[in-house]
Nucleic acid binder design. Structure first.
Length: 458
RNA sequence: GGCGGGUUAGCAAAGAGGUUAUGCAGCGGAUUGCAAAUCCGUUUAGAACGGUUCGAUUCCGUUACCCGCCUCCA
């Protein structure tokens, strides 16, 4: 089966056909670096990583561009309110530029911990102010802009196609608008450029043909996607929340400036929920990869958990589910390791089935089930191993390089264990059991093997 | 208020109009001095009501409940 992907634009599964043979232009909306990423944010990057892996498994060369939003969007209230970067700066007492660098590094560390392949091109919003300004000028030239006292806005009423991606009901939106329009002409109009307030000294502001200020929050993606991938490229991804506003406006801008809908396919990852509610940064506490590590989890266990659910359905996070994933991953790794070192080729039939699952809109849950079917099959060990390592190009668990962890055993623990091993071999069961209890008190479990024992931490 | 999605066994989560999802947990057995690990086997399903059908958890309708977006957001 050839690759089929769900396209939000058509709300249907479409066969994937690249615009240029053998190549894929992919733009994925990146983080706003005013705070750490939480594991809900990272679910979307895991979905996109799965996508790039599947594209590569299909033989495509993927030109993957991701932005770093290091200029503040606005905290709330449709183009009103304070700037997130400036707010983060005030919170931490560091410059906006410093915290942008800090959280960018933290984000990349998270990607690494989850074994997410980095994009081929990173681009920072603040490095592309000129591109954003000229993009706005292009829109202005086409007659879609108007100026208010606080910025330059896009007049969505001049664009009959506006809101198609989100299937927006413009009339309904006007009626149910939750915020004041201010000087905006329509509820769906959005800022292209915002002016710095006269009394305000911003850390991040630039001169523009319209006045000193900063870019609106959708223009960077349109401008950078245009610069690195052209007027029309293959796939654009983001979280489900981007459908109705951010991506709708990216399309709007690009359509005004260049007459395309920016990307041929639009794909969206769905949210991670906790306690059946969306995980959010504004709701205070949120789960970071570092917290998982601190609690003794391997971040790859979280990756495993995400792969057990389809990217297009919401996933309810719980520690119980993460425990299950960690156990399953541990066994899978041990299983693959135990298959030995023999050389073999991947089993063509299983690989074909595997590709069929992944090519069906990235069905990782079924692909994972197939891995277990393969493990239970009666194929030769070496062939199983080669096949699973092939599968892992999609999973990204790092199965090929995994080896059981060598644990450092303190000398006193080793001494007790040796004593128990001697007692056991002397069939002194009472003493052996007593010493096992002693080990447990020290926090160690002892497993008897045929010719030797192994120790593991409790 | 407008738009969209969901409800599957103890937990998480898939596909399929009729034939084992899968993982974790549980249970039984093998194995073990006892364990652990492993292996083999196995019990729990598809919100409620109605319709279509030889047959529906799967398609259609109604109801209930849950969630997301519409506001910064993955």
């Amino acid at each position: 089966m050839s690759l089929h992907l769900y396209d939000t634009w058509t709300r249907s599964l479409r066969e994937f056909t690249p615009l240029k043979a053998g190549e894929v232009g992919l733009y994925t909306c990146g983080p706003t670096v005013y705070n750490y990423a939480h594991i809900g944010n990272l679910r979307t990057y895991l979905f996109e990583d799965g996508l790039t892996r599947v594209l590569r498994l299909n033989g495509y060369q993927v030109n993957h561009v991701m932005n770093i939003t290091d200029v503040g969007h606005l905290v709330s209230d449709a183009d009103e309110g304070e700037d997130k970067m400036e707010a983060g700066s005030r919170r931490t007492g560091q410059t906006a530029w410093t915290i942008a660098a800090l959280y960018t590094d933290a984000f990349r560390a998270d990607l690494k911990a989850l074994n997410i392949v980095e994009p081929t091109t990173w681009c920072k919003a603040t490095d592309h102010i000129a591109e954003q300004i000229s993009f706005i000028q292009e829109i202005e030239k086409k007659g879609y802009t108007y100026k208010t006292s606080d910025g330059v806005y896009f007049d969505t009423s001049k664009q009959s196609s506006y809101g198609y991606l989100g299937r927006l009901d413009i009339e309904g939106l006007q009626g149910g608008a939750r915020v004041d329009l201010g000087e905006k002409r329509n509820a769906t109009d959005y800022a292209l450029w915002k002016f710095s307030a006269p009394e305000e000294k911003r850390q991040m502001e630039w001169d523009s043909p319209w006045g000193r200020g900063f870019p609106g929050w959708h223009i960077e993606c349109s401008a950078m996607a245009h610069k690195y991938l052209g007027e029309y490229f293959d796939i654009h991804c983001g979280g489900e929340d981007h459908i109705t506003v951010h991506h709708t406006n990216e399309i709007s801008q690009t359509e005004a400036a260049y007459g395309t809908r920016l990307s041929n396919y639009w794909m969206h990852g769905y949210f991670l929920l906790t306690n059946d509610a969306k995980m959010s940064k504004s709701a205070g506490e949120f789960l970071r990869v570092q917290l998982l590590i601190d609690k003794g989890y391997d971040p790859i266990s979280y990756r495993y958990l995400c792969l057990t659910a389809h990217y297009r359905s919401q996933l309810n996070f719980s520690w119980e589910a993460l425990d299950a994933a960690q156990t399953a991953l541990g066994r899978l790794r041990q299983n693959v390791f135990s298959l030995g070192e023999g050389a073999a080729k991947p089993n063509a039939e299983y690989v074909a089935k595997f590709m069929e699952k992944l090519n069906d809109d990235l069905n990782f849950p079924q692909a994972l089930a197939l891995a277990y079917e393969l493990l239970k099959s009666d194929l030769p060990a070496a062939e199983k191993k080669a096949t699973l390592i092939k599968f892992d190009e999609g999973f990204g668990f790092g199965l090929a390089s995994w080896v059981p962890k060598e644990v450092e055993v303190p000398a006193n623990v080793r001494a007790v264990a040796d004593a128990r091993w001697a007692a056991r071999n002397a069939k002194d069961w009472a003493e052996a059991d007593r010493l096992r209890g002693e080990l447990a008190a020290l926090g160690w479990a002892m497993k008897d093997g045929k010719d030797a024992y192994t120790l593991s931490k409790l």
